[in-house]
Design a protein around this nucleic acid. Sequence first.
DNA 1: CATAATGTTGCGCAATGGGCAACACTCATT
DNA 2: AATGAGTGTTGCCCATTGCGCAACATTATG
Lengths: 259, 259
Amino acid sequence: MGNTHLADSSSVQSVDRALAILEILAQRGESGVTEIAADLGVHKSTASRLMGALLNRGLVDQVSDRGRYRLGLGLVRLAGNVTSSLDAVSGSRAITRALATEVGETVNIAVLDNNRVLYVDQVVGPSMVSMRSWLGQSVPTHCTATGKVLTAWLDKPERIAARPATWKKLAPNTITSVDALEKELEQVRKQGFAVANQEMEADFMAIAAPIRDEHDEVTAALVISGPASRIKAKDFDALGHIVKLSASKLSGNPNYWRE
Amino acid sequence: MGNTHLADSSSVQSVDRALAILEILAQRGESGVTEIAADLGVHKSTASRLMGALLNRGLVDQVSDRGRYRLGLGLVRLAGNVTSSLDAVSGSRAITRALATEVGETVNIAVLDNNRVLYVDQVVGPSMVSMRSWLGQSVPTHCTATGKVLTAWLDKPERIAARPATWKKLAPNTITSVDALEKELEQVRKQGFAVANQEMEADFMAIAAPIRDEHDEVTAALVISGPASRIKAKDFDALGHIVKLSASKLSGNPNYWRE
DNA sequence: CATAATGTTGCGCAATGGGCAACACTCATT
DNA sequence: AATGAGTGTTGCCCATTGCGCAACATTATG
């Protein structure tokens, strides 16, 4: 998909500023007009007017009658349009649901978004334990099974560009060096699937396989995830093959997931 | 939530035009610059530049290198931010998951969005039959259990404003008159839950109950849905009470779902 | 080949975006 | 109670930039 903010080829400054507000609110959660104005480097009256335009279209909501702002449900409506058209075109939902039922865990489809992974589809498994929603989440590449699958087959320069900005240790097994990551990606290419074993969050496991287009390019990742108490080392191989099989059913078609 | 497009109080014209493009693409699926320009009443060079700003921020994608445009995955990322912050604040996920497991069907939370219903959360039930995703979908109020619950307790003028633009018969049992709808909403108020029995789609059933804030105002609807082969008339009452119980667990708090 | 249709981009004018300043409102302090 | 600080909104007016014209590039068709 497009970069978060390219050089301003063929753009409109005021529109770009308004869309920058959305990014700021995505990071901040909620914010006041004066704070946003400082972030944008504009006067607060300008920030207020730009915010007004976003408010009028439901892309932001006011936290109270007069005051702080946050991202609005209008975005959910628009994003629902994106994901349902993906479902309609790719026919992926039947396959992901079958996989979720077969392995009993949550299933996602994810794409590469610059040097991050974006989760664009989700089927929650039937397990009773409350798991967070990954849909629409953006995570680093190096500590996720999806990130490994999405980067393992990239050429070297692209693979370098997809590395994380920081090698922060997020969980007990987080990979924190280039050498270790390259060795892991070699293993992914050999196995045809990736495992993230408590690398992004303690107690959180994931196994992912690549979805490929008609030219055999990796376009998305199919992943199952759950707690370490249910996904054990002795099962990685069998589960990896099951995920690969489902991913292959999603493969061979034009790139629906557009990056 | 905010209206789709208010009178332009405190707004910026070019930003509003760019956001109008998002709405057009949501309706159209994909579109060329010239078509969008005609819709907006601007020159195609203007439409191209507005589109460029949306493209730079990932809110639209190009279908090919040079040509048609559609809504982009950047919207999924932003919407994911909205829904995960709703989960975090409301703690609704545990309750909706438990309900999905208990009744074996898909569970959603929905809000009133002008005279439409917007689905803002979803847990898919463990059933094997492939069901569509409701998350982010916008549907009419009169033929959905959620729409009935969200409008039943409104004052008369607001209830009138929430009626559908057209009374098109969408399925075998679609309500197609004001009198029939008012009678149905009276029944909903009496029962405390709503049933949609093949009213929006043939073979599709739903049962919904209201989620209320600390002032007992209805702020969202909790709904279970599935095919008519699994949700039968003899079970409406029992299921209605189960959904009411779960909705009451989500009630009594400030309005997380913001309308 | 020519033509039609589409999307992109340089240029320059004037419409509107944006800063200034005033206002409205809330909250905290004395 | 009054005052001050901080915030968001809005009228006014100037100058920046949005936008239409026109040229160009690309693709598809006959």
